[in-house]
Write a protein that binds this DNA or RNA. Structure first.
Length: 562
RNA sequence: GCGCCUGUAGCUCAGCUGGAUAGAGCAGCGGACUUCUAAUCCGCAGGUCGCAGGUUCGAAUCCUGCCAGGCGUACCA
């Protein structure tokens, strides 16, 4: 697979190679002064007059060469090392860019290649089977998933899909905080609601969970069990356990319904029962990073960038949440992951330095862990912000949103913004199943291609296995431009696997769909000219393949009919 | 106080890690269906890239300092 992708994906890389070879030649023959080759870029210019690709090489050389960029550009163009006639023509632009037009045959080869690879176009092996873990959502099992969780779920899931597509050995994990205070509080909240059915004056815990779902759980569990026969503390324990299980089950269902699954649901409570926390603390101690103060045990995170040292075991003998977190990450490390990505809500950012410092205290490099912070999701309805607060239990759940708007639209909108910026979700806009909704724009292009193929079948036009010379009929600039856009896909995926910013994929697909819509409106695909029809059908097939591949990485469906 | 994130068109956001005349969608105005699906397309209008300096051939992008908003700074989880 690697070799196949290499053979083409890298139009840009091919050009970069040609440029390097050319510079070497110029150095050897003395056309240019010998020097190390500086960093340069090969990019797609936004102005089509500037060619299929452009490079800034001359400008990066200018200083050292003591010559003008345009001069250097001229020398490079004159001596281009292009044995395969990859380049149709090259010219000088602006203050010293070199603009390249690629020979049409290269584009036809590329399109053939895409059609051969189908669902595998864009797949690569750059991850080299490296073990990588993405931990995401990890919502507390004390209440339903809200919109922020949804955003994290969409991001994490899509990253996993992209990383998997890029040849990593990806594991997806959900960490369940099922130990400690909050679960007890869940039980107490349910208990109190249950007691309130006959006696409304029964007190509710100060920091209890307020949502309506607590009452519902109380009703449900009361039906299934004999709460009356238990002592209060037994009842509360039971309610904690059953409440947690039920909520977790719902979380799993909501996520599955959202297209998100996990390889492992890792329980915090297992860290306790297996003795892993104890061992983690012992390791800290063995490394001399533990000390006692005021009756508590502390870890020296301040040695590694943290503002202060942190408590891992409280005065009362209980471990802190931080202790289990350290233990959990140590466990990830021991399981052999080379790269670990955590997706957290932005309100946890204060936690990052602390965890990384703790890991370093145990001898693990800080950059082993990458933390992506998801900024807030604000919901707007009828022009006003829908205020949400977990405390009051008034918030819109992921399930409610998905039920109203649909999985595809929710995922697409969540994924179309960089996770570092806050996101305003306008529900009225996304609810509309019309052109205002960006996801339909992309999906429609896919459905449109399918429709064109039906039309072709009615006209009895079919495609041969291999396009061969048929593609020579694709002579319009727009047609070459469509193929060029398709060529960008593999390198885009590669970049996303590196910078973990999948929102660029949504923009790419919107652009690709737009180019196709424009093309469709200006030119007939199925016409009396049989060969030309076939050529354009091949082109359309390429578009279909790309949109389907791209959407599937986003976890969005590609309908054949709309 | 300190730390993190954000500030780009009326609104929501991109801007490919420093490149050519800063882009898209929505909202506004005006056009295109006897045609392969009009969930589409074409045109017009819309900008002090928060502000001020600096770095260099070149800055929305990098560095510094301000301003504004959000979040965080526990022996809570």
């Amino acid at each position: 697979m690697g070799a196949e992708t290499d053979s083409n994906m890298l139009m840009k890389k091919k050009l970069a190679k040609i440029l390097k070879d050319t510079l070497d030649l110029c150095f050897r023959k003395g056309f240019l002064k010998q020097m190390p080759i500086p960093e340069f870029v090969v990019e797609v210019p936004n102005n089509p007059d500037h060619g299929h690709f452009a490079t800034n090489v001359p400008m990066t050389l200018a200083g050292e060469q003591k010559s003008s960029p345009r001069n250097i550009a001229e020398i490079i163009i004159r001596h281009l090392v292009d044995h395969d006639h990859f380049i149709l023509k090259a010219g000088i632009g602006g203050t010293g860019f070199i603009n390249f037009f690629i020979a049409p045959g290269q584009w036809y080869d590329l399109l053939s290649h895409i059609i051969n690879l189908r669902d595998d176009y864009g797949r690569s092996s750059i991850g080299r089977g490296e073990k990588i873990m993405v931990e995401f959502v990890s919502a507390n099992p004390t209440g339903p998933l809200h919109l922020g969780h949804g955003r994290g779920a969409a991001l994490g899931d899509t990253l996993c899909r992209v990383l998997d597509f890029s040849g990593y050995d990806v594991k997806r994990e959900f960490y369940i905080n099922d130990a400690g205070h909050q679960i007890k509080m869940l039980g107490e909240s349910i208990y109190s609601r249950w007691k309130q059915f006959p006696d409304p004056s029964y007190p509710f815990p100060l920091d209890g969970y307020q949502g309506d779902y607590i009452q519902e759980l109380a009703v449900e569990i009361a039906k299934e069990t004999q709460l009356e026969s238990l002592a209060p503390h037994e009842a509360i324990d039971l309610l904690s356990e059953l409440g947690k299980d039920k909520i977790l089950k719902e979380i799993k269902e909501d996520l599955a319904n959202f297209g998100v699954t996990f390889d492992l649901w890792y329980k915090e409570s297992d860290l306790y029962s297996s003795g892993k926390i104890d061992r983690a603390i012992k390791l800290i101690e063995k490394r001399g990073m533990l000390f006692e103060k005021d009756g508590a045990s502390w870890i020296r995170t301040s040695l590694f960038g943290d503002d202060k040292d942190r408590v891992v075991r409280k005065k009362d003998g209980e471990f802190t949440y931080f202790a289990s977190d350290i233990s959990y990450h140590l466990d990830k490390w021991k399981r052999g992951f080379k790269r670990v990505i955590n997706i957290w809500g932005a309100d946890h950012h204060g936690y990052i330095t602390r965890v990384k410092a703790a890991l370093e205290a145990e001898g693990i490099q800080q950059d082993w862990l990458e933390v992506l912070l998801i900024q807030l999701v604000k919901l707007w309805e009828r022009g006003a912000e829908v205020r949400m607060s977990k405390r009051s239990g008034r918030y819109v759940t992921l399930k409610e949103l998905v039920d109203q708007v649909g999985v595809d639209a929710v995922r697409f909108v969540f994924l179309s913004k960089d996770h570092t910026s806050p996101l305003d979700f306008h529900i009225d806009l996304v609810k509309r199943k019309d052109s205002e909704n960006p996801v339909y724009y992309v999906q429609y292009a896919h459905a449109r291609v399918c429709s064109v193929f039906k039309k072709a079948a009615r006209e009895n036009i079919h495609l041969p296995e291999e396009p061969d010379s048929i593609l020579l009929r694709l002579v319009l600039d727009e047609e070459i431009d469509l193929i060029r856009k398709m060529a960008e896909f593999p390198s885009l995926i590669e970049e996303i696997a590196g910078d973990l910013g999948p929102h660029r994929l949504t923009y790419y697909l919107t652009e690709l769909a737009g180019s196709f819509h424009r093309y469709y409106n200006r030119h007939r695909i199925v016409s009396d000219d049989r060969t030309l029809s076939q050529a354009r059908l091949f082109l359309s097939l390429g578009i279909k393949i790309l949109i389907k591949n791209g959407l599937s990485l986003l976890g969005v469906s590609a309908p054949e009919v709309m």
